[in-house]
Amino acid sequence: MKQNVEIQTADGVAGAALFVPAGPNATTSGVILYMDAFGPRPALYGMAERLADAGYFVLVPDLFYRAAPYGPFDATAFSNETTRAQLMALLQGTSQAMTASDSGAFLEALVAAGATGRIGAVGYCFGGGRALTAAATYPERIAAAASFHGGNLASDAPDSPHTKAGSIEGRVYVGVAGVDRSFPPEQSARLAVALREAGVDHTIENYVGMEHGWAVSDHGVYDPKGAERHWKRLLEFFDETLR
């Protein structure tokens, strides 16, 4: 069941949705689900519920809280000139450093809710890089980080997630969209080299034919078969690492 919570950060109060596990699968492990570019919404809450049903405490924080209120947006927002401009302002105004700082408060919120075991992170699109950056920023606390169709994971930007590979102590899984201008093959190769040279236990898997956004149900490119493959990989990854 979804609970709306407020989390005090260094820059204000972030809204978030918390999901608490119940039943025989329940664990004391937790997961931070880093949103895609369109923000918290029912599609992401449904994904969080599935993780909670698998036994995990799940937190879905609003990474754009500094600009609230905004939206709401759906996955067609980039096709409209006005909403595209609004989204780009939010994306460009929410730095990796901001989310890295916020993630300390997100971790504490999970602990306060009862997630006293191992913690994982998973991010989609914009959130994919945030999950990896969080793992590098809190290596003693985040045991597993996954990215699906994450963009710019190994770009030329000074805060690109691949530059922090040496700080990651947990396991990493990266599910790559086969068709994705935001994460071309040269970036995938650069990320692989960075993780391997850093000695990070990692997997980078190419989902051939899948487009950016394939795993999230309200995207126009959503692929049910590809999404179930993503769920199989993610749940196995977390079960192996967090339980």
Rank of each mutant, 00 (worst) to 15 (best):
189 A>G: 13
40 P>C: 10
107 L>W: 02
33 L>D: 03
198 A>I: 04
236 E>K: 14
46 G>E: 06
60 V>H: 12
237 F>R: 10
111 V>I: 04
241 T>S: 15
212 H>V: 08
153 L>F: 00
210 M>W: 10
130 R>Y: 08
199 G>L: 06
203 T>K: 05
130 R>K: 11
204 I>S: 02
221 V>N: 09
19 F>Q: 05
162 H>V: 12
134 A>W: 14
148 F>R: 03
128 G>Y: 05
19 F>M: 11
122 V>T: 11
3 Q>V: 06
147 S>V: 00
31 V>R: 08
26 A>S: 02
64 F>V: 02
34 Y>Q: 02
28 T>L: 10
183 F>Y: 09
41 R>A: 06
18 L>V: 08
3 Q>C: 07
205 E>I: 04
163 T>L: 13
230 H>S: 14
195 L>W: 11
93 G>C: 07
221 V>H: 08
232 K>L: 10
44 L>Y: 03
223 D>T: 08
230 H>A: 08
145 A>P: 09
125 C>L: 05
242 L>P: 03
121 A>E: 00
140 E>W: 10
23 G>A: 06
15 G>E: 13
207 Y>K: 07
24 P>N: 06
10 A>L: 14
162 H>T: 12
70 Y>F: 07
214 W>Y: 12
194 A>G: 00
176 V>H: 04
191 L>P: 01
87 L>M: 10
199 G>R: 04
207 Y>N: 15
216 V>T: 08
181 R>G: 10
218 D>N: 04
146 A>Q: 12
131 A>S: 15
211 E>M: 13
75 A>Q: 03
32 I>K: 04
93 G>R: 02
230 H>C: 11
199 G>K: 05
212 H>C: 05
25 N>A: 15
115 A>T: 07
93 G>M: 04
10 A>C: 02
243 R>K: 14
95 S>F: 01
199 G>S: 11
64 F>Q: 04
72 P>H: 11
126 F>K: 02
157 A>C: 06
210 M>R: 15
142 I>Q: 01
1 M>P: 05
128 G>T: 00
98 M>Q: 12
167 S>M: 13
214 W>H: 03
109 A>G: 01
35 M>I: 13
60 V>K: 08
188 S>P: 02
230 H>Q: 07
80 N>V: 09
62 D>W: 14
104 G>K: 09
33 L>I: 07
185 P>S: 12
225 K>P: 00
229 R>C: 12
197 E>Y: 05
72 P>D: 06
33 L>V: 11
118 R>C: 01
186 E>H: 10
207 Y>R: 14
25 N>D: 12
229 R>A: 15
167 S>A: 15
181 R>S: 12
121 A>N: 10
80 N>C: 00
38 F>P: 01
238 F>M: 13
97 A>H: 01
185 P>K: 08
62 D>T: 09
72 P>Q: 09
21 P>G: 12
27 T>Y: 09
80 N>L: 07
173 Y>N: 03
26 A>R: 03
48 A>R: 13
63 L>S: 03
213 G>F: 01
57 F>Q: 00
215 A>E: 11
123 G>E: 07
197 E>V: 06
144 A>P: 01
17 A>V: 02
53 D>W: 13
163 T>H: 11
203 T>H: 13
136 A>E: 01
215 A>D: 05
69 P>T: 05
125 C>E: 10
19 F>D: 10
126 F>Y: 14
220 G>E: 14
